[in-house]
Each structure stands twice: as structure tokens, then as C-alpha cells.
Amino acid sequence: MTEYNATFRKYIKYMFFLLSIFVLGYGFTPYHSIFLGLILGSLFSLFNLWSMYSKVERLGQAVIHKKKVKTLGSLSRLLMGGLAALIALRYPQYFHLLSVVVGLMAIYIIMLIDSLMQAIRS
């Protein structure tokens, strides 16, 4: 397995761990709308992670084989954030808007913390 694939699997693992915490929070606390918002945002964040992984992999292959890549999928990732916000606005009784936004940023926070931990270790 390459370093790139291993990094991706590590982030997926952390995201599922975080999602399981949110599901437990939804089940065992009275703050249902907050945790449901976090779950929704995290699911969209997970899609963004997979999208980035596949596009960057395709770019790497294209450079090696001297081919062209048209897009990096930035538009779809930006619009996923918009879609999450729209769902939260449409169903405010189920999804807390601020927690959806925090959930969307989950993968980026995980990446930052992981990079910091690696920098501290080395």
C-alpha cells in the first residue's frame, strides 16, 4: 500500500470513529438536533474526502502517463457544502445549522490535528 493510500485509510478511520461518537451522542443525550447536524455535516465531509482522494489519485496517474486531467472536482465539493446548508435550512427542527457547518469542517480539523501530531513526533 502506498503512503497516499495509507493516509487516506487513516483519515477514513478517524472520520468513522468521530461519526460513531456523534451517533452515541445522538442516542444518549437530549441534544438530538445538534448531533444530527454534526452527523449530516460529517457525512458530506466524508464525501469531500473521497472526492479529493480520487481526483488527486487520477492527477498523479495522469502526470505519470502524460495525460490531461480536466478538473479537480472543486465545484462539487463546494456545492456539497451548500447542499448541507440547504438541508439544514429546510429542516431546522431536525438539524442545527451551526453543527452542520462544524460537521462539514470535521475532516479538515482531523487533517490539521494529524499533521500537527506528526510534526510534534518528528
Partner: peptide, 20 residues
């Protein structure tokens, strides 16, 4: 690729907030 992956993620974080 790993460094690019992390870089793209961090660069796109704030524009996603902007769209939201």
C-alpha cells in the same frame, strides 16, 4: 500526492464555509 491532498483540503476549507 499526500502533501497535495492535505494542501488542497486546507485551501478549500474556507471557500466551503464561504459557499455555506
Amino acid at each position: 500526492q499526500t502533501t497535495m491532498f492535505i494542501g488542497i483540503a486546507l485551501v478549500e476549507a474556507l471557500p466551503i464555509i464561504g459557499v455555506v
